[in-house]
Design a protein around this nucleic acid. Structure first.
Length: 560
RNA sequence: GUCCCAGUAGCUCAGCAGGAUAGAGCAACAGCCUUCUAAGCUGUGGGUCGCAGGUUCGAAUCCUGCCUGGGACACCA
């Protein structure tokens, strides 16, 4: 790491009066290329030394020579460090080429397990854009965390339990049609669900019937259970179509129902620790003053989602011994997770500290929450197929001879949708816009994929051959590309520690921009002595782009 | 009412462990394909970083207050 070297040099230069680690923090990457690759502002030292910052900068600059540095400038109160381009370029390119897709990998995680609660759609309901966020962010985090040496465990905590199933069973018994449900499970079940609510406003007795049906289900009534299982299976089949398209698999699809028989134990634990208090007829755990109490049991004795989540958290710890447990769930549930973690701490579980609510912003429509009740949701599957269709049109238009058109259109269409969801900070709300999601120009997934395909195309045409040790000759034009390549490991580390996939997305965009600029300026395949060197650079770019895209869950087709 | 999050170019956003001249993309306009995929590149215009204080040599970035928008706040998840 060059920063460390610079810091050490600076320590020497000021006679060891300051610590290297302190200086490391002050060394920055300047905004403007004309200010070099690293910069050190001298204001702090100026106070210590009682000299003007400008003077210190001049002094330091004169003492910082090393073959690694091409130039050291003192500009006002700053020391600007320019790296030796040839040396660093060779170094970086060799590193990327020799490590290949392992470039940027690390063992930060030391093989610890990380459970990730993601996706978690409700059975018998359409897979909405809201679930997309959890799925896409969660999957990217799984890949990122794996890259830094953890063992990700993807858990699809299905919403497969609750009174709504009683309602659904009732509705099915009254108006259901087996054939239709089999053919279009989710659509049919949703219709029944909506119908139930419509009818229930006129006939309140229906609600009771629904509750009764759920009780039957809980008590294991054969017919009710069979129906429930069937709904669950058929729904999952439909979800799997979408997961396949996105290339996502799960290690567990244990949903709410799975924890049904594990809640009693939690309640017992809470009782043993004297944490359960009666309040307005319900049983609650009192938390610190700034947090409202956590509801555990309703007046009627029935459990709540908090209870279920407690059981799930404990189960996960006992099963996987996680070093971190992530819940990729929307912003609006932050209070719930705060309470959950607090209760676990009160139960004496230290590992509760390792649980993190990976919150994300909502998908809004015209600035408002999208409503599932009214059946007016945007279906993910429709968005995906539109994106794929558009990608297909683009291919016909731009590269009609392409082999494997439909497979590649799928990769690009899905890529556009996924990338759109990952490129910004996950906590931002997103106003739903099909137009934005399908965009393929500018800061988009297809733009990055295109850049990668371009690089691959050049490698094919240039007949690229791997060599052991590369001596690079590239200079000025390639420098910004090399600089980006160098930053990949850092972007990964940041994405992993902050649980922020957008760091990777931003990185691949910047690398793509730098490379496309280079591509426009330099004739890579021109026959001259540095052609091979240029090809090595292109190879490195293609490796890093592909790996960056992979970490986001996107494919990197070699042609498009 | 209490708590949380956000307010940066016409739009979408980046930058926020304080540092030099606040950046991208989209949209608009003007260019660049007989030569490596134009899903690209180059250029132009566009900003009181919500408002007001404070801390600091230095604030879009940290602190306080206010305004605006969104979300959460007991038997839904």
């Amino acid at each position: 790491m060059y920063k460390k070297i610079i810091a050490d040099k600076l320590v020497q230069a000021c006679g060891g009066k300051v610590k290297s680690s302190e200086l490391m923090q002050r060394i920055e990457i300047p905004k403007y290329e004309s200010h070099g690759d690293y910069a050190f502002p001298c204001f702090q030292l100026a106070k210590l030394e009682k000299m003007s910052p400008n003077q210190i900068a001049t002094n330091l600059a004169s003492q910082l020579n090393d073959p690694l540095f091409e130039k050291i400038d003192a500009v006002g109160p700053y020391v600007n460090v320019f790296l030796n381009k040839k040396m660093v370029t060779s170094d970086v390119i060799n590193q990327v080429l020799s490590q290949g897709e392992e470039y940027g990998s690390s063992d930060l995680g030391k093989a610890g397990a990380v459970t990730i609660d993601l996706s978690s759609p409700n059975i018998a309901k359409p897979f909405s854009m809201g679930h997309l966020r959890s799925t896409v962010i969660g999957n990217a985090l799984a890949l990122i965390v794996e890259k830094v040496g953890y063992r990700p465990i993807r858990i699809n905590h299905l919403g497969d339990w609750g009174t709504q199933f009683g309602k659904l069973i009732t509705a099915y018994r009254k108006w259901g049609n087996e054939q239709k449900v089999r053919e279009q499970t989710i659509k049919e079940l949703l219709k029944l669900y909506i119908l139930f609510h419509e009818e229930a406003t006129a006939d309140p007795l229906l609600e009771d019937e629904g509750r009764k049906a759920f009780k039957e289900l809980e008590q294991g009534d054969l017919e009710a259970v069979t129906l429930w299982k069937w709904f669950r299976e058929e729904s999952l089949k439909e979800f799997n179509r979408i997961y396949d398209l996105m290339g996502i698999t799960f290690d567990s699809t244990n949903g709410e129902a799975f924890y049904n028989d594990k809640m009693q134990r939690v309640i017992k634990m809470l009782e043993e620790k004297d944490l359960l208090v009666e309040s307005n007829g319900a049983m609650v755990v009192q938390l610190a003053e700034d947090l409202p109490p956590c509801l555990i049991k309703k007046k009627d004795g029935a459990s709540l989602y908090a209870t279920r989540d407690l059981a799930a958290a404990i189960y996960r710890y006992e099963t996987y011994g996680f070093s971190a447990s992530l819940y990729v769930v929307g912003n609006e549930q932050s209070l719930h997770f705060k309470q959950l973690i607090e209760v676990l701490k009160k139960l004496g579980f230290k590992w509760a500290e390792q649980m993190h609510h990976i919150n994300f912003g909502m998908m809004l429509k015209d600035g408002k929450k999208m409503s599932t009740r009214k059946g007016k949701v945007v279906l993910l599957e429709e968005v995906l197929s539109e994106a794929i269709e558009l990608a297909k049109e683009n291919i016909e238009d731009k590269n009609p001879d392409l082999a494997n058109k439909s497979a590649i259109a799928e990769q690009i269409g899905v890529g556009a949708v996924l990338f759109h969801d990952l490129k910004n900070d996950r906590r931002n709300d997103i106003d739903f816009s099909l137009e934005d999601m399908l965009r393929v120009e500018g800061e988009t997934g297809p733009y990055v994929q295109y850049t990668h395909a371009r690089a691959c195309s050049i490698l094919r045409k240039g007949n690229y051959q791997k060599v052991e040790n590369v001596e690079m000759l590239e200079g000025e034009e390639a420098w910004s590309v090399v600089t980006k390549l160098r930053q990949f490991p850092h972007a990964i580390e940041r994405a992993a520690t902050e649980y922020d996939p957008s760091q990777i997305a931003k990185f691949v965009l910047e690398l793509s921009r730098a490379f496309n600029k280079y591509y426009g300026q330099v004739r890579i395949l021109e026959e001259n002595s540095s052609k091979q060197a240029r090809l090595h650079l292109v190879m490195a770019v293609s490796i890093v782009l592909k790996e960056g895209l992979r970490l986001l869950g996107l494919h990197a087709p070699e042609e498009m």
